[in-house]
Design a protein around this nucleic acid. Structure first.
Lengths: 137, 137
DNA sequence: GTAATCTCTCTAGCGGCTATAGCTTCAAGG
DNA sequence: CCTTGAAGCTATAGCCGCTAGAGAGATTAC
């Protein structure tokens, strides 16, 4: 049996975050010690590792809830898990594209500024005047 | 003089967002009509355009506040504006890199899954077992 | 036994909005 | 001039995924 601090150290998920996950129904309320402290089994520790890994990959709490449900039913088809992961991947790709557009615009703006006074500053001028931009963002 | 709805339409910033910006001190409280409705000048309309543009480029409210202050002092050196923009650019580049790492990991995971049952699902297995990952994320 | 460290619950806050409720004002048409 | 419907007002609460803090009690090491 592990205390909340122990699973926090082992998984890298902070203590208040673990309690938050419990509140959100991501993890079940664990057993308690006589003094009302949470006590986790090895299985619960591993499940938290699963959650941490999924969060690190950027999956939402809702998506993780679904994945955990699937994980609990090994005989079900995994199309749903694939769908969740694929959707998330598409989402990430969109964000990358958007950020890359911003990157190119911003780097152009920053490069064009020859650090004089504000009145000639290309950074400020570009913000004031959309026509100085190359494309939509 | 423009009503809040008019500047909302012209700038693409939603009405409640404009009121929120006022509350946050991004824009000054404008004049009011006799019936206590906000009335904006052309200058205020343009300032909101500046803000919208900066938000579209991903700048934070705090950064925009600073830029607006600079914008109001055309004779000051613009090094500060450059610093804000460059920092933001660095920030964007970091996010892109991080997302690209996620993208490559997730696409590998999704590709490896041959859509059988959950128990063999590579998506689920990869989440459970960090050693199936190629690098840190 | 005692001191240090955890852990407990509860509440509030972050950023950047968005939504809702219940009201008042404005502008256009008859 | 009056009515109607759109637009505006304030105030409050909610979104996500935590994080921070207060003030209390539990556990552990010595």
């Amino acid at each position: 049996m592990f205390s909340i601090g122990q699973i926090a150290r082992r998984t890298g998920v902070k203590v208040p975050t673990i309690r938050y996950y419990e509140q959100m129904g991501l993890i079940e309320a664990p057993e308690r010690s006589q003094g009302n402290q949470r006590r986790y089994s090895k299985a619960e520790l591993e499940q938290l590792g699963f959650i941490k890994h999924a969060r690190d990959l950027g999956l939402s709490i809702d998506a993780i809830r679904d994945l955990l449900r699937l994980n609990a039913h090994p005989e079900m088809p995994c199309a749903e898990a694939d769908r969740i992961a694929s959707e998330h991947l598409a989402n990430i790709r969109e964000r990358i594209e958007r950020l890359q557009r911003l990157e190119s615009e911003l780097s152009r703006i920053v490069k064009s500024c020859n650090a004089g006074t504000v009145k000639d500053c290309y950074v400020i001028r570009a913000l004031s005047d959309h026509s100085l931009c190359r494309d939509e963002h």
